[in-house]
Design a protein around this nucleic acid. Structure first.
Lengths: 136, 136
DNA sequence: TTTATTGCAAAACCTTTGCATGTAT
DNA sequence: ATACATGCAAAGGTTTTGCAATAAA
């Protein structure tokens, strides 16, 4: 249940936080910007100031409920942090983001980072290409 | 020589373009922001408006002289486009960028993109971790 | 009632753009 | 002489912040 996870963060259970968290639960595997979230809520006649959306997103990220990604030079995208690690494939044309998991590249990635003195934090790997819709 | 490559772009050879291109040639493997470039030039008592730096960077990128990267939510970084393909390792704490090349992950990347209907464009792959300086 | 949260407006920040002036060809 | 580059100031877009009003504990 939504409020359970929220309570564990120590944050107060407010309607804004519940509404925003519900958006993520209803859109798993989606990558949403602060504007996307505000728009989705507006469709339900829920009006939340953008400043609040940003603040709540920051708090959720701090609490490891969601992950923030800066894939391109546009808006930051957020997604539910579900524990299952996965990486991302980003279309350089339209910005479309596709999740994937690959054990082999995963292992290689760990070796590479380690051999350069990097330690793992999170598991982020991003591949850039052009998606099929944009390729024609 | 600098002016050779510049001439091939069809752009006029101006002092601003020469100065900016020289910065890149003198700092291979470095990833510089527009501000970095302006600062480096200021140290040589060369004053170029930020708007010009941005415009020139855009033109250089268009001409494939340099590459633009948006690794995080901060400033865009530019580096010389030397032909040798390589990927990047980014420290999530300090933003430090390290180049690397790995044939195995390279091949795996191509397979992965293809199997998801993505086509290659450029060869961008980014690993995120924490560098040794930030790890302590 | 005490403390945290929200909304609003304004600011911060990077990046782009309009326009008049200056420079390369 | 013509076309393109530059500087300046202003605007654009996303994200953050100050502060008074409001809601959660």
């Amino acid at each position: 249940m939504s409020s359970e996870k929220l309570k564990n963060t120590g944050l107060k259970i407010t309607s804004a936080r519940l509404a925003i968290f519900r958006i993520f639960e209803n859109a798993p595997d989606k990558h949403l910007s602060a504007y996307d979230i505000q728009d989705l809520l507006k469709e339900e006649d829920i009006d939340i100031a953008l400043a609040t959306v940003y603040r709540v997103l920051g708090q959720f990220e701090e609490a490891d409920l969601i992950q923030r990604h800066d894939f391109d030079d546009e808006k930051a995208l957020y997604e539910l942090h579900d524990g299952k690690q996965h990486d991302h494939m980003v279309c350089e044309r339209c910005g479309n983001v596709t999740d994937f998991f690959d054990g082999e590249i995963e292992k290689r990635r760990e070796d590479l980072l380690a051999s350069h003195g990097f330690t793992l934090s999170g598991h982020r790997l991003v591949l850039y290409g052009v998606c099929s819709s944009c390729a024609n």
